[in-house]
Amino acid sequence: MTMATQGTASNYLQRGPSPSGLADVVDLILDKGLVIDAYVRISVIGIELVTIDARIVIASVDTYLRFAEAVNRLDLTQTEAAGLAELRDGGSNKKAKGAVEGAKEAFSGNGREREKSEKD
């Protein structure tokens, strides 16, 4: 991690002066801001559709299976960190690969489905 190779901040940090996407405005304009007496705020149609995607349960078996599949699928030779792991673990990864293929088949029908937010 040398200073010389570091680029501009935008390499790591995306900047926006103001909310620009649907996610931003839903986050800020629909969920936040001053609320005056409830009766004044008129019915805003469509909010449910826009915000339905917002909360996702994390600790579920579905998530576990997805994570398990994802770590099994990792090609550790691609990353530096993984290189160290391989050195440490010796050849054990080769054995694991066989199991991975079977597991992938077993869970291939388990793709995660998410409700899409209405774009307009």
Binding site: P19, V25, V26, G46, K119
Partner: peptide, 13 residues
């Protein structure tokens, strides 16, 4: 009546 349309949300912002 007001719909929470993308362009209206952005305009508010």
């Amino acid at each position: 009546k007001l719909r929470a349309k993308r362009r209206d949300l952005l305009r508010h912002s």
